[in-house]
Computed example of a mutant assay.
Amino acid sequence: MLKLNRVHHIAIICSDYAKSKQFYTEVLGLKIVREVYREQRQSYKLDLEVGNLYQIELFSFPDPPARPSRPEAAGLRHLAFEVDDLDEAVAHISSFGVDVEPIRVDEFTGKRFTFFADPDGLPLELYEI
């Protein structure tokens, strides 16, 4: 039987590298692990640390296709970040001008959550533990 240990990384392709780098590092506060430019692919790869456990790989490629729809396109639906204090997290990202949906309550767990989007419209979630 296959034994998967954990999620190793999440890869995201962005359309505007500088804008997305600023969003993920300054707005979301993710730590830069390494940044490389791959000349042959005309692509940046930025490794970002999430809570000492996960890694997001932010890629740039020339003219990537747009996401078909939000969020019910086939494939990855959204990326969720766990937070201790949802109100504090919403206030923080809102201070950067990020639009955040109204806070909802999960009908099964009773936990609070909300959605917002990165610069390319990728749906992101904040989920309060």
Rank of each mutant, 00 (worst) to 15 (best):
1 M>G: 13
2 L>Y: 03
2 L>D: 05
6 R>T: 01
6 R>V: 00
7 V>S: 14
7 V>I: 13
8 H>I: 12
8 H>A: 06
10 I>K: 10
10 I>R: 04
11 A>S: 07
12 I>R: 05
13 I>G: 03
14 C>V: 09
14 C>M: 04
16 D>C: 08
18 A>W: 14
19 K>A: 02
20 S>M: 05
25 T>E: 11
26 E>R: 15
27 V>A: 14
27 V>E: 09
28 L>T: 07
31 K>T: 05
31 K>S: 15
32 I>C: 06
32 I>P: 09
33 V>H: 10
34 R>P: 11
34 R>Y: 09
36 V>P: 13
37 Y>S: 15
37 Y>W: 12
38 R>Q: 08
39 E>M: 14
39 E>Q: 12
40 Q>M: 06
43 S>Q: 05
44 Y>F: 11
45 K>Q: 14
46 L>R: 04
47 D>E: 15
48 L>K: 06
48 L>Q: 08
49 E>P: 04
49 E>K: 14
50 V>K: 04
50 V>E: 02
51 G>L: 14
52 N>W: 14
55 Q>N: 04
55 Q>E: 07
56 I>P: 00
57 E>H: 07
58 L>A: 14
59 F>W: 08
60 S>F: 06
64 P>M: 05
64 P>W: 03
64 P>I: 08
65 P>F: 05
66 A>S: 12
66 A>G: 06
66 A>I: 13
69 S>Y: 09
75 G>Y: 10
75 G>N: 04
76 L>Q: 08
77 R>P: 05
78 H>R: 11
78 H>V: 06
79 L>H: 08
80 A>N: 07
82 E>K: 01
84 D>V: 13
85 D>W: 11
87 D>Q: 13
88 E>C: 08
89 A>I: 03
90 V>K: 06
91 A>N: 07
93 I>A: 06
97 G>I: 13
98 V>M: 04
99 D>R: 12
101 E>R: 13
102 P>A: 10
104 R>D: 01
105 V>K: 02
106 D>Q: 00
106 D>K: 00
106 D>T: 00
106 D>N: 00
107 E>C: 00
108 F>I: 02
108 F>W: 00
108 F>N: 00
111 K>G: 03
112 R>K: 08
113 F>R: 00
114 T>V: 14
115 F>Q: 03
116 F>Y: 12
117 A>P: 02
118 D>C: 09
119 P>W: 12
121 G>T: 05
123 P>K: 12
123 P>D: 05
124 L>G: 01
124 L>R: 09
125 E>V: 00
128 E>G: 01
129 I>E: 04
